[in-house]
Design a binder for these strands. Structure first.
Lengths: 243, 243
DNA sequence: CGCACATTTGACGAGAATCAACTGCAGTGG
DNA sequence: CCACTGCAGTTGATTCTCGTCAAATGTGCG
């Protein structure tokens, strides 16, 4: 069979991220997997304060964890893409501290009781337990990254930093084409992720295109030079007058 | 005996946060507690990438999780105060994704193996297991709060939001005096927490004092009106011409 | 008393927000 | 087939928040 291993082609099995699971674990996954569900963009998957007891595996599309201020300002705390778990916590009875919203049309698989069962008996499902802990720690690391981005980086650095992060995640999911990865988010949504206005996102992207850092085609980004982009993302204060 | 229950007076027992622990749990804590250690301000307690296998309970002082950019910019992702665990994770072999630094002189108690033992057998140490999960979830919530603060809030809103958060945490620790709580951080450090320059922190604090929101005495903040401060922190766009 | 460090002040500039209008484009229906 | 519609992207003008630089003032402490 063709070796195209994407989240969508593999279904919930993609959860394993290439880790070899025991038969017991494979079966557990099958037992607790719902069927694929499609949701429209804008759909609120989880409201704040709700229990995170039904994590969702993303087959395609983008989800964001969203916080609103009372005057309408919006901040997206984290993004979730194909191959990742969203509305997820390793802790039983954990509550959402944001809304989880479909930022594009998404296809997801709900799990029910899977995480609870695995984490209640990590000795019986060792690989899955490690995997879930890994997901949790990666999510944590992303939150800290996000704080640094919006707290201390300039607009073009924020974009670069996010681009590198997304590139690596899509690469792992097998959804990159060279240095190109999907980017269906509107500039308004990007603004809410990066703490910038739509207009400023627009101008920043234009500048980065002019600088030869980024190529944006319809619904995709191509990072021209990963090293260079990572350099910009590191906050090295390189001014616009380079190469 | 006098009912002054502060982290410092109670030692690692303060970890329980008032939850009634079983004898078994109390003993486990005693077994895994180190003796109090004092560290100078600036001491790096944990470097990035190090294992978080020895969480520290703070008896007094402030710790921050710190990220540096390559040109020297600094962002503090989270703060930890007396009565809280720092350099902590419920996950075995979890690594730090920031430095943990003493922002003031601190007194801490190191634990060794405590969390591992509890989380390996949550059925045997149910209260502690719940407690540790609670700590983890609170830390998570704080990270999301921090993203919203630095991503979408104006300077005075960030200060208000942080002030309310800290007030509640010190209240729980029994370290509030009315609406007054400890604030030994320099304005430079506050800037690194809130993603603002020292100068702008200074001017923002002056404005908030003039507005009657905040009283700053030496190493303490007093929130004049919690409701009003929370209102500002919610991002309601109330302009300066109020009250 | 004097040193180091924290806070404060002023002048200026830079990065980003806002407002408003215009363009481009894909989907829809006449 | 093409005008109509709605939304995403783009542009220009202007304003505002905040950063930077530099110097002065204040404060705790050996």
């Amino acid at each position: 069979m063709s070796p195209i291993l994407t989240p969508e082609s593999r279904g919930l099995a993609g959860l394993s991220r290439g880790v070899r699971l025991s038969d017991r674990e494979v079966e557990l996954i099958a037992v607790h997997a719902g069927r694929p569900v499609s949701l429209d963009a804008g759909h609120e998957i989880i409201a704040p304060e709700m229990f995170l007891n039904r994590p969702k595996y993303i087959l395609s599309g983008w989800v964001g964890s969203v916080r609103m201020l009372s005057d309408g300002r919006r901040q997206i705390a984290d993004l979730y893409v194909a191959g990742e778990l969203t509305a997820f916590s390793v802790h039983p009875r954990a509550k959402a501290n944001a809304s989880y919203v479909a930022l594009t049309p998404v296809k997801i698989i709900e799990t029910d009781g899977l995480v609870e069962n695995v984490m209640a008996r990590p000795d019986i499902f060792p690989e899955l337990a490690v995997l879930f802990r890994l997901f949790a720690q990666e999510a944590d690391a992303r939150l800290v990254d996000q704080i640094v981005r919006v707290g201390r980086m300039l607009a073009h650095e924020r974009v670069a930093h996010l681009a590198v992060d997304l590139y690596r995640r899509f690469e792992r999911a097998g959804l990159c084409d060279g240095r190109k990865f999907p980017m269906p988010l509107t500039q308004e949504i990007l603004g809410d992720v990066l703490g910038l206005s739509t207009v400023h996102i627009n101008r920043t992207l234009q500048q980065m295109r002019r600088d030869g850092l980024l190529i944006t085609t319809s619904h995709h980004w191509e990072i021209v030079d990963i090293e260079q982009m990572a350099e910009v993302a590191s906050g090295a204060r390189a001014r616009k007058s380079n190469s």
